[in-house]
Amino acid sequence: MKDTKTTFQERYLEAGPRLTPSEKKIGEYLLRNPDEVLGASAVKIAEATGTSDASVIRTIKGLGYQGLPDLKKEFLESVLRRRNSAAALDHNIESIQTNKRPAEQMLANSVDIIDAFREGFDHEAFARCVAAVSNARRTYTYGLGAGSMVSGFLALHLKRVGFDAEAMMLAGYRLADDLLPLTANDCIVLIAPFHQTTEVEVIVDHAKDVGASVVLVTEALGMSLQNRVDIIIKTPPSISNVVSEHLAPFVFSYVLTMQLASLQKDASLKRNNLFNDLSSRFTGSPDFPSPVFLSDIDDDDSDN
């Protein structure tokens, strides 16, 4: 019987050296697509991996599960935990408390997430995303909660390399103001790892109404929104690791920005040089406060 304290990822990684090529293919699919697995049969998983349903069941049992329903139960628990921030925090704290070197664990988990993102990266979807943003009149970005930091990061860096971009930072009915300017020539990059909130629903529906393209960067909403968005960038499962679900979206945002900048190198450098020039007017240099500025602060402090 499966040890409930051992996750699928841990079991798969431990078994790696003794798995056959087909078992590794099945294991990788299960690891990267827990949400899809919840609604899939062994036959569907076999079709997705180019194997047989017998191989799927054999692989799952070989990893210590009683069968596909047993594995789905674990995946369902992890999905529910991801969508409950308190439960996710409790899971992470417990994992840290039982580790003698928690920082090393968290750094290793971060590397694992990036490796999984690289290995499962959908280059065709990425190329379509690059084209959508490149051809857009304006790119709007949106993320709720901590996702707003990723959204702001992406919009900021798109501006700095010469693309018209704006981060929508409001929520609830106030989001309506941000959506008013949206046109058929625009693109929305939606950062939504887990939660299919009202804001996500309204953005997707309104974009469809006006004809704007939508890029969804998500860990768990691919299946539920696949017929309502234009492009899906799937990020790897983060719940079995002590790592933020926003790590992969941050990396994706930087990769997207650099790819877009490479398409118009001269224009991007010109815009960035303009940014540096404007920054220096405030600070005396593009990166650091000038000595005069620092001395002004010291003088002000001495007067108090």
Rank of each mutant, 00 (worst) to 15 (best):
259 Q>E: 11
151 S>T: 04
220 A>D: 12
216 L>H: 01
237 P>K: 06
226 Q>N: 13
252 F>D: 02
261 A>W: 05
184 A>K: 15
206 H>L: 13
279 S>M: 14
232 I>M: 09
185 N>P: 00
161 V>I: 15
157 H>R: 15
275 F>H: 12
257 T>E: 10
222 G>Y: 04
152 G>V: 05
172 G>W: 02
274 L>P: 01
280 S>M: 01
238 S>L: 06
242 V>R: 07
167 A>I: 07
199 E>H: 10
182 L>H: 00
210 V>G: 09
159 K>H: 11
267 A>S: 12
226 Q>E: 13
173 Y>P: 12
222 G>T: 04
208 K>C: 08
159 K>W: 10
169 M>K: 12
238 S>Y: 14
243 V>M: 13
196 Q>M: 06
186 D>W: 01
274 L>N: 12
186 D>T: 06
225 L>G: 05
232 I>V: 14
174 R>D: 14
248 A>V: 03
200 V>F: 07
254 Y>R: 11
199 E>V: 08
181 P>W: 08
265 K>F: 06
167 A>D: 08
223 M>E: 11
156 L>Y: 11
206 H>W: 13
157 H>K: 15
162 G>T: 08
275 F>V: 15
201 E>F: 04
201 E>L: 06
263 L>S: 02
244 S>D: 08
222 G>N: 06
213 S>P: 02
179 L>I: 09
183 T>F: 06
283 T>N: 10
204 V>P: 01
189 V>W: 03
266 D>H: 07
197 T>I: 06
271 R>D: 00
191 I>D: 00
177 D>R: 13
263 L>C: 03
152 G>W: 02
201 E>I: 08
216 L>G: 07
269 L>S: 04
251 V>C: 09
191 I>T: 03
172 G>H: 00
276 N>L: 10
168 M>R: 07
283 T>W: 13
